[in-house]
Design a protein around this nucleic acid. Sequence first.
DNA 1: AGTGCGATTGACT
DNA 2: GTCAATCGCACTA
Length: 207
Amino acid sequence: MGRTHDLKPGRRTPLARSELPIDTVSLARYLLGKVVVRETPEGVASGLIVETEAYVVGDAAGHAYRGMTRRNRSLFLERGHAYVYLAYGSSYMLNVSSEAPGIGAGVLIRALEPLEGIPIMQLHRGVDRVRDLARGPGRLTAALRIDGGVDGLDLCREGPLWLARGDLEPGEIGLSVRIGISRDADRLLRFYLRGSPFVSGPRSLNA
DNA sequence: AGTGCGATTGACT
DNA sequence: GTCAATCGCACTA
């Protein structure tokens, strides 16, 4: 039984871009313990980031590897912008751009611990179990109803989707290979809060 | 214009 | 554990 986290609603402030590490790997670690806030007409839903992956400069597994295209152009925005794309024709992936303008790299948000708006997320997902609401990159976007409409959004400003501080220091950070890729597959670029029940992936990667 | 292939998920043996 | 759904994109011609 992993611990859960309580955050006081209403005291939340956006992450300042100036405090975001410029390096992609550093940002992937930094985002653990921060909060994704989704504001919709139905209400606010939010979750604590418990798992990330870094897709660094020169990374054959990264979408920016072969240069800018219509799909991946948001990866080349200044750090702190959303890159959202459709994977496997059915699941949207949420990334945070991570480098200087014109440099393509990003951090994939892979799992959240639901905080606010749990009934909204249950409705969006069609499942009740809180542990399963946002455990996986496609599940968390479904829970928060994130799609291509927020691609390119500045996540350092309050709005439809933004990043906020957490109240507590993240616990021990685990490290593993990334999930579901074939190129550059041996690099240890996946980060997660060790012991969190809200982390995705096989147990073998979550030791 | 056609082909192959995913940064996944849910259903099923 | 296996496997199909599903579609935008990159690549070839």
